[in-house]
């Protein structure tokens, strides 16, 4: 666990942003990831007093405050109804209930972790990140941006009628995923995102017109690079991606039929 000199439950995003400009200060989301770090910090910046812990649903979109927990994503009825249960599916294998009551959406997305189930899932949807200084930008763009000292305020997901599905594989329960795959379908277009390759999730759009599920899956999976680590080889990951993307496509097609 790191050490810190001060703790501030900020009263505004402006205060949070100002404090966060100092390199030794740190925004704490759920602290699950941060607590594994060592060293001396200055001020711990806590956003929990800003009411950013709710999921709001309008006709057009979902707006998810950065302090919402992964457990809120997992249990939110509107979100899971709109996107065919993918939020439950992408969260339920992450460590345990107590962990998911702590880990936040803001920390998960800001971290842009290679293994992230959350990032993989969100990338298959029409998702945006709202930054205090940077404004609202597409999540795809945020994913490849360098780490800076902005404050992630919300995630916005547009309701564009996309059908979606999610699958991941772990070597053992509660471990990081070995591969994480999500698919979204809009008309004839497919949005396929694959994470834990072990590189960070990315997304590609491909047209499904006139293609069978296995053909489409092969085409989609071949667009990504796969690497090796302790959990598995790149070759194994490439094979798994093929299989899981095909299953996702079949699941969505079956639902539509």
């Amino acid at each position: 666990m790191f050490k810190a000199r001060e703790y501030v439950r900020v009263k505004s995003l402006e205060e949070a942003w100002n404090l966060n400009q100092k390199k030794s200060n740190v925004i704490v989301g759920g602290m699950m990831w941060l607590k594994m770090g060592r060293g001396q910090k200055g001020t711990v910046i806590d956003l929990s007093g800003l009411g950013l812990d709710t999921i709001e649903e309008t006709e057009e979109a979902f707006s998810i405050g950065c302090m919402c927990t992964l457990r809120q994503l997992e249990l939110h009825e509107g979100l899971n109804k709109e996107f065919d249960g993918i939020f439950r599916e992408c969260t339920r294998h992450i460590v345990g209930t107590q962990f998911r009551n702590g880990a936040t959406v803001g920390g998960s997305v800001f971290g842009r972790y290679g293994f992230s189930d959350i990032l993989t899932c969100l990338l298959a949807l029409d998702s945006y990140v709202e930054l205090y200084q940077g404004g609202v930008i597409p999540l795809v763009q945020f994913t490849s941006m360098p780490y800076d000292r902005d404050v992630l305020v919300r995630i916005v997901i547009k309701k564009d009628g996309r059908k979606a599905a999610y699958l991941s594989q772990r070597n053992t329960q509660t471990d990081f995923p070995l591969i994480a795959c999500a698919a979204g379908k809009m008309g004839d277009d497919w949005y396929v995102s694959i994470g834990a390759r072990p590189k960070r999730a990315a997304v590609y759009r491909i047209s499904g017109t006139g293609k069978k599920a296995d053909e489409l899956a092969r085409e989609a999976a071949s667009m990504f690079e796969y690497g090796s680590n302790l959990r598995g080889s790149g070759e194994y990951r490439a094979h798994l991606a093929n299989v899981y993307v095909r299953r996702l496509i079949e699941t969505i097609e079956k639902r539509e039929a």
């Binding site: 704490v28 759920g30 699950m32 607590k35 107590q98 702590g102």
Partner: peptide, 19 residues
């Protein structure tokens, strides 16, 4: 390290007392 925080199970090893 599980405790209930306002009724919800959380990991007390990963929760700041200040929060």
């Amino acid at each position: 390290c599980t405790v209930l925080l306002d009724g919800k199970p959380v990991l007390s090893c990963s929760t700041l007392a200040a929060r």
